[in-house]
Protein backbone atom coordinates (compact mmCIF):
# COMPACT_ATOMS: atom_id res chain seq x y z
CA UNK A 1 0.00 0.00 0.00
CA UNK A 2 2.84 2.36 0.84
CA UNK A 3 4.21 1.90 -2.64
CA UNK A 4 0.89 2.76 -4.27
CA UNK A 5 0.53 5.94 -2.25
CA UNK A 6 4.15 6.89 -2.90
CA UNK A 7 3.65 6.47 -6.62
CA UNK A 8 0.50 8.55 -6.42
CA UNK A 9 2.33 11.31 -4.59
CA UNK A 10 5.05 11.27 -7.21
CA UNK A 11 2.45 11.43 -9.95
CA UNK A 12 0.67 14.34 -8.32
CA UNK A 13 3.92 16.25 -7.92
CA UNK A 14 4.87 15.55 -11.52
CA UNK A 15 1.48 16.71 -12.76
CA UNK A 16 1.70 19.83 -10.63
CA UNK A 17 5.19 20.60 -11.88
CA UNK A 18 4.22 20.06 -15.50
CA UNK A 19 1.19 22.31 -15.19
CA UNK A 20 3.25 25.00 -13.46
CA UNK A 21 5.51 25.10 -16.49
CA UNK A 22 2.68 25.86 -18.93
CA UNK A 23 2.30 29.31 -20.34
CA UNK A 24 -1.42 29.41 -19.64
CA UNK A 25 -2.24 31.03 -16.35
CA UNK A 26 -5.20 28.70 -15.82
CA UNK A 27 -2.93 25.70 -15.95
CA UNK A 28 -0.58 27.45 -13.59
CA UNK A 29 -3.33 27.69 -11.01
CA UNK A 30 -4.37 24.09 -11.57
CA UNK A 31 -0.73 23.16 -11.09
CA UNK A 32 -0.78 24.88 -7.72
CA UNK A 33 -3.86 22.85 -6.81
CA UNK A 34 -2.08 19.64 -7.75
CA UNK A 35 0.96 20.60 -5.72
CA UNK A 36 -1.21 21.15 -2.68
CA UNK A 37 -2.92 17.78 -3.21
CA UNK A 38 0.46 16.15 -3.37
CA UNK A 39 1.71 17.91 -0.30
CA UNK A 40 -1.40 17.12 1.71
CA UNK A 41 -1.11 13.50 0.79
CA UNK A 42 2.58 13.46 1.64
CA UNK A 43 1.87 14.98 5.02
CA UNK A 44 -0.90 12.48 5.60
CA UNK A 45 1.44 9.70 4.61
CA UNK A 46 4.10 10.62 7.18
CA UNK A 47 1.59 9.99 9.97
CA UNK A 48 1.35 6.39 8.87
CA UNK A 49 -1.53 4.61 7.22
CA UNK A 50 -3.95 3.12 9.68
CA UNK A 51 -7.06 1.62 8.20
CA UNK A 52 -10.40 2.77 9.54
CA UNK A 53 -9.27 3.81 12.98
CA UNK A 54 -9.79 7.56 13.16
CA UNK A 55 -8.50 9.48 16.13
CA UNK A 56 -11.64 9.53 18.23
CA UNK A 57 -11.06 8.87 21.88
CA UNK A 58 -14.18 8.33 23.95
CA UNK A 59 -12.22 6.92 26.82
CA UNK A 60 -12.82 3.30 25.95
CA UNK A 61 -9.69 2.54 23.98
CA UNK A 62 -7.09 0.65 25.92
CA UNK A 63 -4.28 1.48 23.53
CA UNK A 64 -4.35 4.94 22.04
CA UNK A 65 -1.41 4.26 19.77
CA UNK A 66 -3.67 2.10 17.64
CA UNK A 67 -5.47 5.25 16.52
CA UNK A 68 -4.35 7.19 13.49
CA UNK A 69 -2.00 10.09 14.00
CA UNK A 70 -4.15 13.21 14.53
CA UNK A 71 -1.45 15.81 14.12
CA UNK A 72 -0.87 15.55 10.35
CA UNK A 73 -4.62 15.49 9.90
CA UNK A 74 -5.02 18.72 11.81
CA UNK A 75 -2.28 20.28 9.71
CA UNK A 76 -3.87 19.03 6.50
CA UNK A 77 -7.27 20.33 7.51
CA UNK A 78 -5.79 23.75 8.00
CA UNK A 79 -3.89 23.43 4.73
CA UNK A 80 -7.02 22.46 2.83
CA UNK A 81 -8.96 25.47 4.03
CA UNK A 82 -6.10 27.84 3.37
CA UNK A 83 -5.68 26.16 0.00
CA UNK A 84 -9.28 26.94 -0.70
CA UNK A 85 -8.71 30.58 0.09
CA UNK A 86 -5.68 30.55 -2.20
CA UNK A 87 -7.51 28.77 -5.00
CA UNK A 88 -10.50 31.09 -4.85
CA UNK A 89 -8.24 34.11 -4.83
CA UNK A 90 -6.16 32.82 -7.75
CA UNK A 91 -9.24 32.05 -9.80
CA UNK A 92 -10.53 35.56 -9.34
CA UNK A 93 -7.05 36.86 -10.05
CA UNK A 94 -7.04 35.01 -13.38
CA UNK A 95 -10.37 36.57 -14.19
CA UNK A 96 -9.18 40.05 -13.38
CA UNK A 97 -5.91 39.39 -15.15
CA UNK A 98 -7.76 38.50 -18.31
CA UNK A 99 -10.05 41.52 -18.03
CA UNK A 100 -7.06 43.85 -17.70
CA UNK A 101 -4.70 42.34 -20.22
CA UNK A 102 -6.94 40.45 -22.60
CA UNK A 103 -4.67 37.45 -22.53
CA UNK A 104 -4.07 34.34 -20.50
CA UNK A 105 -0.53 33.84 -21.78
CA UNK A 106 2.02 34.56 -19.09
CA UNK A 107 4.75 35.35 -21.60
CA UNK A 108 2.76 38.32 -22.79
CA UNK A 109 3.34 39.80 -19.34
CA UNK A 110 7.08 39.74 -19.57
CA UNK A 111 8.89 42.99 -20.20
CA UNK A 112 11.23 41.21 -22.56
CA UNK A 113 8.41 40.54 -24.94
CA UNK A 114 7.24 44.09 -25.23
Amino acid sequence: MNLIIAVLIGLLYATGAYLLLRRSIVKLVLGILFLSYATNLLLFFTGGLSLMSPAFDDGSYPDLSQLSDPLPQALILTAIVIGFGLAAFSMVLIYRFFKETGTVDLDELSDNKK
Binding site: V81, G85, A88, M91, V92, Y95
Partner: peptide, 16 residues
Amino acid sequence: VVAGMLVKVIFSVMEE
Protein backbone atom coordinates in the same frame (compact mmCIF):
# COMPACT_ATOMS: atom_id res chain seq x y z
CA VAL B 1 -15.62 33.36 9.20
CA VAL B 2 -15.63 30.38 6.86
CA ALA B 3 -19.31 30.77 6.04
CA GLY B 4 -19.01 34.52 5.55
CA MET B 5 -15.93 34.21 3.39
CA LEU B 6 -17.54 31.59 1.19
CA VAL B 7 -20.69 33.61 0.67
CA LYS B 8 -18.80 36.80 0.02
CA VAL B 9 -16.49 35.22 -2.53
CA ILE B 10 -19.13 33.31 -4.44
CA PHE B 11 -21.56 36.19 -4.47
CA SER B 12 -18.88 38.53 -5.75
CA VAL B 13 -17.97 36.16 -8.55
CA MET B 14 -21.60 35.54 -9.40
CA GLU B 15 -22.26 39.24 -9.70
CA GLU B 16 -19.60 39.41 -12.35
